[in-house]
Design a protein around this nucleic acid. Structure first.
Lengths: 187, 187
DNA sequence: TTATTCATTGAATGTGAATTCAATATAATT
DNA sequence: AATTATATTGAATTCACATTCAATGAATAA
């Protein structure tokens, strides 16, 4: 089935191209034509692979939901250690697989107002803030983390990670931070 | 000149309405018609006050450049103290003047890819990252802040502030963080 | 080889949204 | 009061896309 494989590869190529453009220019500013041109293929053919621009986005978001969805499960080490390890893992993973950075940024973009409803809902469903709140509360109880509204702390924590990723997706040569000192903001 | 004053007030009303909608729905997803309806006034009249949607955005960004543009100047206290004080000032100011939150979020939105070029450039020109890098380097030299790439640290720092503001603009009743522990991430 | 299915193209269509415009009302100036 | 300038409206215009389509080429199956 060379035919089917070809189709699958082509689909992946479209997805990766779209991911890059959505992140670099924004979803609404990326024309179907731009993606087609970059792949490259004709405009019409895009619709042979994806029913609509929105469906294409949705497919990307589905990919995005699969990666780090497991944050906060099976925590056997102290919260601060767990969080440091987790950041270490995604940072080093993303350094090898650059598209992971892009995916992070895309997911954040899709969670913002004005994005297609379905994709937005899906992206929100894998937001790591909620599990982080639990972890932080545990850490506070153990006296590892300082006092304060756990939700605020979780938001600030992920926002800084997000911010770094976002910057990195534009400025390829920024140095990634030491997970230690992002976690330090909670201590 | 009641006429001129009326016009000025009307202009402000449009600006505030647009600010709210741009933040809550996003710039591209906010139709001129939506703004007109919310003010309220006819669609056509909008163009009597602002030449274009882009010009309206630009005007908002101009307002946004005026506030905290002075970050990092005349620093007479240790960097950590200065930064804590600065956050304290903007947090308490913004709590009194809610539109300041919105403005913060808008400025971040405009700095992202896909926004009208001119507004984007302007918004980028008041990014606080550059002056923060200097402050952080000073703090590192004095042994107050930990080692690490100062730019990365500055980005992470502002990203967390940004993230809180963004969340707050949607979720009005989140508790604002203690500036102390945002600055703590640098120590 | 012939028929059939799938891949591909680029131009045509349709739609939504910014912008313009001609007309009308309201206020300011003489 | 008459004239001029400004405010206001809603419909008409334009334009930029997403999406559709009819036609063509290429691969697979018969």
């Amino acid at each position: 089935m060379t035919r089917k494989e070809q189709k699958e590869e082509r689909k992946q190529a479209i997805l990766m191209t779209a991911l890059t453009l959505f992140v670099e220019r924004g979803y609404h500013e990326t024309k179907i034509t731009d993606i087609a041109e970059a792949v490259p293929m004709s405009t019409g053919l895009m619709f042979h692979y994806f029913a609509s621009k929105e469906e294409l986005l949705l497919e990307l978001v589905r990919m995005g939901t699969m990666g780090p969805g497991s944050f906060g499960e099976n925590v056997t080490v102290p919260p601060d250690v767990y969080m440091t390890m987790f950041l270490n893992t995604i940072f080093s993973f993303a350094t090898e697989q650059p598209w992971v950075f892009y995916m992070f940024v895309l997911m954040a973009q899709v969670r913002r107002p004005g994005m297609p409803e379905e994709a937005r809902k899906l992206a929100e469903s894998v937001d790591a803030v909620a599990p982080t709140v639990k972890l932080i509360k545990k850490g506070q109880k153990d006296g590892i983390f300082h006092k304060g509204n756990a939700e605020t702390m979780a938001i600030a924590f992920w926002a800084s990670v997000q911010g770094i990723m976002e910057f990195r997706s534009i400025n390829k040569d920024i140095k990634m931070p030491d997970p230690e000192w992002i976690v330090a903001m909670l201590k």
